[in-house]
Design a protein around this nucleic acid. Structure first.
Length: 227
DNA sequence: CTCCAGGTCTGGT
DNA sequence: ACCAGACATGGA
C-alpha cells in the first residue's frame, strides 16, 4: 500500500538546514554574533503564511509584543472563522475588507486600524496581488509591499523574512537599532544606515543574524557587559 | 504623571 | 534628502 507522507509544517524544512545556514554567518570574525549564537542554540525562524504575517506586522507599530499578540487574538476571536470550540482562525483579507474601520478599532488597534482597513480594501481590488508578491524575488517583493498603507521598511522586511522566507531581509526595529549602537559602535546611525550595515556585514542570510541580535538584546540588553 | 512600545506618514527645512 | 510631530493605547 502506498502511503502519503503527512504534510509537515513548513518550518521543519528550514530547521533541517539551520546549522548550515547559521554556520555561513560571519561568527568567526564577529565575537558578539558568536556569543548570540551560543546563547540561543534553539532559536529558529518560523515560515508563516504570507497574508497572516502582513496582518500581524501591520499591528506592530510602536506596540509591545504582548499587546500585538492581544490585538491579533482579538482580530481572530471577533472576525475569524471558528475552527474548533473556542478556537478561531485569523480573518482573511477579503473578510477584513468588509469590516468598517470603526469595528476594527474594537480590537485595540488604535491608528493601525486605518492601515489594516485601507490595505484590506486595496487587496480586495487585486485578488492575486498577495500571491504574486510572495513569489517575487526579495527586492521586487519589497518594492510592492511598500505600496501598502502602513508598510514601511521595517514591516516589509519582517513580512518577507517571516512570511516569505527571504533570509536576506534585515528588519531594523528599536532592538536591532540598540544592538548595533551598543555592540557594533553604530550609535547615532539612522535605521537606513544600520540596515545597510546589516546586509553588507552579515551577508545573504542577514535575517538570521538579525534574529539572534534581537533575542540577545531583548534578554540581556543593558544588563550584561559588552562582548 | 511621564515615558516608551518589533513604525509609518506627513509636512516642515 | 533629513528632521520633528502626530498617531491610539496600555503598561512600566
Amino acid at each position: 500500500a502506498t502511503t502519503t507522507a503527512p504534510a509537515l509544517p513548513r518550518y521543519l524544512a528550514l530547521d533541517r538546514d539551520w546549522p548550515a545556514l547559521t554556520d555561513s554567518l560571519p561568527w568567526r570574525s564577529d565575537p558578539h554574533l558568536a556569543q548570540c549564537l551560543a546563547a540561543f542554540p534553539g532559536l529558529r525562524l518560523l515560515r508563516q503564511p504570507f497574508g497572516e504575517t502582513l496582518l500581524g506586522f501591520l499591528c506592530s507599530a510602536t506596540k509591545q509584543i504582548v499587546q500585538i499578540k492581544q490585538m491579533v487574538a482579538l482580530l481572530a476571536t471577533h472576525h475569524g472563522t471558528e475552527i474548533a470550540p473556542g478556537i478561531h482562525r485569523l480573518p482573511t483579507w477579503p473578510a477584513l475588507a468588509a469590516i468598517p474601520e470603526k469595528e476594527l478599532r474594537r480590537c485595540l488597534l488604535g491608528f493601525r486600524a486605518r492601515y489594516i482597513h485601507e490595505t484590506a480594501r486595496f487587496l480586495a481590488s487585486r485578488p492575486c496581488w498577495l500571491d504574486e508578491t510572495e513569489a517575487l524575488p526579495y527586492a521586487a517583493a519589497k518594492a510592492r509591499l511598500l505600496e501598502l498603507p502602513g508598510v514601511g521598511e521595517k514591516v516589509a522586511d519582517c513580512v518577507l523574512l517571516f512570511g516569505a522566507g527571504k533570509l536576506e531581509a534585515f528588519p531594523v526595529d528599536t532592538w536591532v537599532l540598540k544592538s548595533l549602537a551598543r555592540r557594533y559602535g553604530l550609535a547615532g546611525w539612522s535605521p537606513a544606515q544600520v540596515a545597510h550595515f546589516g546586509r553588507t556585514h552579515f551577508g545573504p542570510f542577514a535575517g538570521l543574524a538579525q534574529q539572534y541580535l534581537f533575542a540577545w538584546e531583548r534578554k540581556f540588553g543593558g544588563r550584561l557587559p559588552r562582548p
